[in-house]
């Protein structure tokens, strides 16, 4: 029989100790989250899928007209933008939505919160850890695409690839925030992931169709059309990516032309502000909700 009689009466160290700082706890939780994500199957699956699809899209786009074509910007980059629009929000939304909800379901969240750390530290730590894993996944996927294309002698603009990588990451951060918000709101992991997939479908397909239908049915003005597009982070990413690699949004039709003529150089700031709102706002709301809800 094991006994621990060696724990004799002592003056408790904890009575005078200070809990670790906010930054240290965030770092500890994020490292744990990053390790878990990297070990998990979803990370491997998404990274592989992203790299393979990216390569396929790149080859098909490049074979259709070389590195330069459609309205002056790289076809390859255009193909990758569409791929990012589909895959990255799905990755980030599902990863974020599963994080808190599945921990709560398994009783891990209550145990973690019974330790000397705050709820904000847990939420932010998980966010940073998942963000790092997404950054690694995207860098690997896009890096493999760029490397293979360069090796095969297909022209790609390094600046375009870098812009695309940076904007993809910004989009991933926004979608991860939204996923975390879904996760703190949902009671069960299955509900959280289901909701995340529904939100993904809505952002990718439904809002586009709704804007088109609304434009026709309600005879929306061009500035209203642009404002509605800016409310969808995926549209913001698409417009910003095209603007960054081409400096013209005429491929998007009248709304794109209007945006270029009306806002010109300030477009970068407008798109940046829109994505920043999508990154910060859901995370702040998630933090407020998380601090008020029971972790059980």
């Amino acid at each position: 029989m094991t006994t621990i009689a060696s724990w004799a009466p002592v003056e408790r160290k904890s009575a005078v100790a200070k809990p670790p700082s906010f930054a240290r706890n965030v770092l500890t939780v994020s490292r744990r989250e990053l390790r878990d994500a990297v070990r998990s199957r979803w990370f491997l699956l998404y990274t592989l899928a992203f790299a393979v699809l990216g390569l396929a899209v790149s080859f098909v786009s490049a074979a259709g007209g070389g590195g330069v074509g459609l309205s002056g910007f790289g076809r390859t980059t255009a193909g990758l933008i569409n791929l990012v629009l589909l895959v990255v929000p799905l990755m980030a939304l599902t990863a974020g939505s599963a994080s808190i909800a599945s921990d709560r379901e398994r009783g891990m969240l209550a145990y973690l919160l019974a330790q000397p750390l705050s709820r904000t530290e847990v939420l932010l730590g998980k966010y940073v850890g998942l963000a790092c894993s997404l950054l690694a996944s995207l860098s690997l996927g896009l890096g493999v695409c760029a490397g293979v294309l360069a090796w095969r002698g297909l022209a790609t603009h390094p600046a375009s690839v870098l812009w695309l990588a940076a904007l993809s990451f910004a989009l991933a951060l926004g979608m991860l925030s939204l996923g975390m918000l879904i996760s703190v709101l949902a009671r069960r992991a299955s509900v959280a992931v289901g909701t995340a997939i529904f939100v993904w479908l809505a952002l990718v397909f439904v809002t586009d169709l709704a804007i088109m239908a609304g434009a026709i049915a309600l005879r929306l003005r061009i500035e209203e059309l642009l404002a509605l597009s800016l409310a969808n982070p995926l549209q913001v990413f698409k417009m910003w990516s095209l603007h960054a690699v081409d400096a013209s949004l005429d491929v998007l039709g009248p709304a794109g032309l209007y945006a270029t003529e009306e806002f010109g150089r300030t477009l970068h700031a407008i798109f940046g502000a829109c994505l920043a709102v999508w990154i910060v706002l859901p995370l702040v709301v998630a933090s407020v909700v998380f601090s008020r809800r029971s972790p059980l």
Binding site: A17, K18, R32, D36, R39, G107, M108, S118
Partner: peptide, 20 residues
């Protein structure tokens, strides 16, 4: 809460933590 929990060692009914 954070400082108070530093004074507490907690054992739950069943350890629910990352099994891996």
């Amino acid at each position: 809460g954070k400082a108070a929990r530093l004074l507490i060692g907690y054992v739950p009914q069943e350890l629910g933590f990352y099994d891996d």
